[in-house]
Each structure stands twice: as C-alpha cells, then as structure tokens.
Design a protein around this nucleic acid. Structure first.
Length: 305
DNA sequence: GAAACGTGGAC
DNA sequence: TGTCCAAGTTT
C-alpha cells in the first residue's frame, strides 16, 4: 500500500447512518422530476441521458433527450441508422464525438448483447464512450445496483461535507474513490438511492459557485462549514480558451454539415473560417475522428457508415 | 498525468 | 463583459 494512511483515514462508520438519513430524507423532498428518473424509463433512456449529461447542463439536455428517445426508442433503432444521423440529432449539445460513440455503443449492444443494455458494470465499461462514472451511473440508476457513482457533484459534496475542503482535487484521486466506497450504504436499493441523492445535493445545494448552505441537510455536520469555510488552497483550475481555437473551428465546420441536408463542397465549408491552414487541419481532424466523411466527388458529409 | 474535446447560460 | 462552469472520456 501507499503512503499517508492518515490522510486516507476511513470515514467513521458510526456517522454513516446519520449522513444517509439526512441526505435521503432531503432527496425525498427535493428531487427534481426528470424523465430519465421516471420508473418507466428504460435502461437505454438512462444510458442516453448519462452520455448527454457528460459536461452538459440538464436544461440543455432535456429537449435533446426527448427527441433522441422518441426517434430511437431502443439501441437497435439507433444502430439501424447512419452514425451521421446521430451526429445531426446531437444538434448543439457539444462534444459531438459523444453522439458517434453512442451510436457505436448502440451497435455493440445490438450485436453483442442481444439489443439489451447490459446490466453488468464491466460490460457497460467496455462500451464506447462509457467510462468509470457512466458505467457506475447506469448500473446504479437503471438497474438499482450498489456502486460508487463519483461525478463532479459527488466529489464536491464529499470534499466539503466529509473532507473539509472547499473544492475537490483537480483530478479524481484513489482516495476519493475509496471514500465514496466507504460511504456507500450496505443495502443495494439504499445504495442506489444514495448515489442519485448525493449527486442531486451537489447539483442543487452544494454548488460550485455559491453553495446554498442554509438549505443543506448536512449543514450541522459539514466538515468544511465546521472548519470555518476555509478557501480553496490548491492551484486554481485554468479555464479553457475558446476564441480562435481548433475547437471553435471544428464546431463551425460541423455546424455547417449538420445544417445541410446534402453533402457540402469544400467551398461551402471555406466560408466558416478564414484561415485556410487551420480550417484544413481541423477538417482533417474531423475526418480522422470519424465525424466527417470525405466523398469521392470531393464533397464532405456526416458519416454514412 | 496532462491535454484535447463544444456550447451557452449565469454572474 | 469576460470568466466560470456543466452527470467525463479518450489518448
């Protein structure tokens, strides 16, 4: 094992029941009504929501999720369409590779899992675009299993309420995972409820910018509050540049292709960015990523195969 | 482990 | 008004 066990001291087991009760009671009264939380929502609907919600706010996901699940009610429905249709339907959700990977996941589910979203964590993790968080989230939310579901909301709640820090570390650490596992209720159904409840607390109350501590069920037990709300000590996380970056160019190129019902000529793409060198490089990148397909006639299209 | 990867609302 | 931030994954 490792160094510094003191820093990784296990959470006191005797405090867990109170923690669980406070958060679960709060969730019972304050959970948002979201379509992917409805009892009738399929595992596929949950999976689609989780991928869409990666780095994307709920408010922007809602209409896209409705459109996607209406058009493709099952993985096989999506797998039967061209991947470019998934990219087109992604609209402006951002990170369009997620759409491509969701399509690839649908193909894998159809071909390797009989068209049913697998309920096994390892099988979920093996799907394209499904990482540690999403695999645990789907296994927990869709199938009621007991998993540590660690997203940015959960990390923030744990950092403040349990560890006493204003913010979690820049990247997910092994200690954070161990803590999340240690906090998990023993009972499977309760663990699944706990997972979504902690996330909801982070999303609605224990927020990044201005936490609503007065509304928090953990206020009297919050390590960060009890420590006097010390400011974050670590390095400030640096923001992402945007203007003039390849990401902006890629976004513009893909927007042109999404909005055109037909393949687009090189001239049609040239209008969206003046710097030909950067434009061509980004277009090559999109082709390499499989988001754009070059046609034999020199035009470009969203991927058809 | 760092860097790349979209987009738009909020403050 | 520009920065911050949103249910991460991949290389």
């Amino acid at each position: 094992m490792r160094r510094s066990c003191a820093m990784n001291a296990p959470f006191p087991p005797d405090l867990r029941p109170e923690l669980h009760r406070r958060v679960l009671d709060w969730y019972a009264d304050h959970a948002r009504v979201l379509p992917w939380r409805e009892p009738g929502c399929s595992p596929w609907g949950v999976l689609v929501s989780e991928v869409m919600l990666q780095q994307t706010p709920v408010a922007r996901v809602l209409p896209q999720w409705e459109a996607w699940t209406a058009r493709w009610p099952t993985p096989s429905d999506l797998a039967a369409d061209a991947p470019g249709e998934a990219v087109r339907m992604w609209n402006r959700l951002g990170y369009p590779r997620r759409a491509l990977r969701l399509h690839a996941a649908a193909v894998a589910i159809r071909d390797e899992h009989g068209g049913q979203v697998p309920d096994d964590h390892a099988a979920l993790l093996a799907l394209p675009g499904i990482g540690a968080y999403t695999a645990a989230a789907v296994a927990s939310f869709a199938f009621g299993q007991r998993h540590a579901v660690v997203d940015t909301n959960v990390r923030r709640v744990h950092a403040r309420a349990v560890t006493g820090d204003a913010e979690p570390a820049a990247a997910l650490t092994a200690a954070e995972n161990r803590l999340a596992v240690a906090l998990l209720p023993d009972d499977e159904a309760t663990a699944a409820r706990w997972a979504v409840a902690v996330m909801e607390l982070g999303a609605l109350v224990c927020t990044a910018r201005a936490p609503r501590c007065d509304d928090c069920p953990l206020l009297e037990r919050c390590a960060w509050v009890l420590a006097g709300r010390p400011p974050h000590t670590g390095p400030a996380r640096r923001g992402q540049a945007w203007a003039g970056t390849d990401r902006q160019v890629r976004g513009r190129l893909l927007a042109v292709l999404r909005e055109s019902p037909d393949p687009v000529t090189a001239e049609g793409l040239a209008a969206c960015w003046a710097d030909a060198g950067q434009r061509d490089r980004c277009l090559d990148g999109l082709v390499a990523d499989g988001l754009v397909e070059p046609l034999d006639d020199g035009r470009f299209a969203l991927p058809r195969t």
